[in-house]
Write a protein that binds this DNA or RNA. Sequence first.
DNA 1: CATCGACTGTTATATTGTAACATATAACTC
DNA 2: GAGTTATATGTTACAATATAACAGTCGATG
Lengths: 174, 174
Amino acid sequence: MQNTPPEQTPPCHCHGGFIAEHDHGPCVNHALERAATLCRERGVRLTPQRLRVLELVWRSSRPLQAYALLEELRVQQPTTAAPIVYRALDFLIQQGLVHRIESQNSYAACRHPDAVHDGQFLLCTHCGRAVELESRPVSEQVRAAAEGVGFEVSQQTLEVHGLCPRCQGGPQHG
Amino acid sequence: MQNTPPEQTPPCHCHGGFIAEHDHGPCVNHALERAATLCRERGVRLTPQRLRVLELVWRSSRPLQAYALLEELRVQQPTTAAPIVYRALDFLIQQGLVHRIESQNSYAACRHPDAVHDGQFLLCTHCGRAVELESRPVSEQVRAAAEGVGFEVSQQTLEVHGLCPRCQGGPQHG
DNA sequence: CATCGACTGTTATATTGTAACATATAACTC
DNA sequence: GAGTTATATGTTACAATATAACAGTCGATG
């Protein structure tokens, strides 16, 4: 587990791979600023509620479910109800800032929201962490295979279950 | 409804592609017989309930949701309750006879249950039909990409949304 | 025929997600 | 800035999806 050189790399290792623990705060802040910029550029409104949900999703080490988010929102605002969460998630998903993990009814922050891309996740069945794969070749091959049978692709989702590097070969918990 | 498949070709076009309507009955019967054989070989019990659910899933031209299945079961047995359906589906999925479509909370018959394989579906957003892709190269490439980041794959699901050949280029309904 | 394990029947409830409508806030126009 | 429109939020109620728990039944096996 070697360190990656800090120069020219994104502000944290979050941008790829199953990684060791680290101070996640700066990554979150950077992501939120980036999201704000993107929304400004797109002329859509990243309201405080939406920002708050995005922050919670980013802070979590694994995908969150809607009602877990709801509970967290209720810490500060006990009257918050389900539609608040779902509306915020709808918006964030539309903007490509959050992905929905279909097989878990959960929601994960998108690590590279700049370019629209397909949802591709590696989901560790042991520690519950999720990592975005974002393999362009896979996307392309899927598209080619679909077009090969005359299917016009608009969206694809890939969810891969298994064991992340840290959870392989031992009973220790991640 | 013959006792044994007389030749080596599959009995209908169901085995691949978005296809024209046809008499689906023989395909269903063949599939159910094949399922019975597989279960016998595996030493597991394809009970009447399970067989009934499998038949309903096969008869449907598109994936069915659990409560839709429940309604159909209730036609013959009005007291049937949700757990019946979910237990049957659990079994059928375990045996690879049915796939769950995660993005739709729905269930589709597996067209080639002989060999265990990954769930890969083309889902038409217009007519609602689903077709299994079953592209081995895609599976392999996904596995390779995952292993490339040290992830040990146990299961993968791919769901591709878009327009099937029949639903492209026109407002007519499929 | 006793017993053990698997399957089914049933009730109740948990979890996940939306409809609908009232209110509030932002953005736009004059 | 007042009026107007569109968008976002607050709130209640409920729909849709899924499971827990336990009692009863059936089937194989010794």
